[in-house]
């Protein structure tokens, strides 16, 4: 029964990782860059919610404000930090992303201070009990949100014009541009979607554990990136699968006292094993390089 509880908790944190990982994977697939500031967008979303809660003490408006704020921030970051570097070496873009990440973290610390905030208004506690098994409301909410986001994105990518343009850009940016796709706009939309998902992830995290500091998104960001790589970076279902898998591994490891101190080591070891066995990730496409 303890094991089942651990799995359920894992699904819950895995759902959050999946939503963050989708942001990573979409940006990578379309802009071919690793947006390491993605985790910090989550943190900014958290603070946006915290600030809104001070004004209107309601979680839903707070979430809405956070989504809008993060979308604007994401588009701005893309426009002013990444777009001028398009076409330059991947290393320059990567370093810039890390710079943006530090900038956001430091700004948050200057504005809100280093002591963690506890927006308990966002917390959803309580659970359904079935005999010995308990399913927390927050787990159900997380899984529901993950499934909705996943289906909505699939529909968006497959059946809408901007969605199909996204696929086109990810397949071959040059060719898509020649076919009349506005790649800059598509990349901006991708960042907007990723940032909106980051705000949702912030809500899911604070709903379970209301502790908000300027490093809120740092570790989940890295875990989600790992999840995206495990699932196959660039693949949306892969990000989902990787996120859930990583969440479950983490939760099970934490629930075994002997393994608990080594949780992170185990998670990243899984990444290494998967990369050794399937270098493109679980659902990644292996592309033959032309020589």
């Amino acid at each position: 029964m303890d094991f089942l509880t651990a799995i359920l908790n894992g699904l819950s944190s895995g759902g959050t990782y999946a939503i963050i990982a989708i942001g990573y994977t979409m940006v990578y697939g379309i802009a071919k860059m690793l947006n390491f500031a993605h985790g910090d967008i989550i943190m900014v979303g958290g603070y946006a919610m915290f600030t809104t809660l001070l004004l209107v003490n309601q979680p839903i408006p707070a979430l809405a404000v956070a989504i809008v704020f993060c979308v604007i921030l994401g588009i701005c970051v893309e426009r002013f930090a990444y777009r001028p570097l398009r076409g330059s070496s991947p290393l320059a873009v990567l370093i810039t992303a890390i710079g943006v990440s530090s900038l956001l973290q430091s700004l948050a610390q200057i504005v809100f201070g280093a002591a963690p905030k506890m927006p308990t208004r966002l917390q959803i506690s309580g659970a359904w009990t079935f005999g010995e098994l308990r399913i927390a409301y927050s787990t159900v909410v997380t899984l529901a949100v993950t499934v909705v986001v996943m289906s909505a994105l699939t529909v968006f990518v497959k059946y809408t014009k901007p969605g199909r343009a996204m696929v086109a850009v990810s397949e071959d940016r040059g060719a898509a541009q020649l076919m009349g796709v506005n790649t800059n706009a598509i990349i901006a939309i991708t960042f907007a979607i990723g940032s909106a998902l980051a705000a949702v992830a912030a809500y899911l995290m604070l709903m379970k554990a209301p502790s908000l500091s300027n490093t809120l998104g740092a570790m989940p960001g890295i875990k989600a990136f790992t999840a995206a790589v495990i699932g196959g970076i660039g693949s949306i279902p892969g990000a989902m699968l990787g996120g859930i898998l990583l969440g479950v591994i983490e939760s099970v490891a934490l629930s075994i006292p002997v393994l608990a101190p080594f949780t992170e080591a185990i998670e990243f070891a899984v990444l290494i094993v998967i990369l050794l066995v399937k270098p493109a990730g679980l659902l990644g496409k292996t592309r033959r390089e032309k020589v």
Binding site: M219, P220, E264
Partner: peptide
């Protein structure tokens, strides 16, 4: 009954609470 966390996992204690 023991449960632990690290600096990196200090943001959510769901699993530890379950234990």
């Amino acid at each position: 009954v023991e449960a632990s966390f690290t600096t990196q996992t200090a943001s959510n204690f769901e699993t530890q609470i379950a234990q």
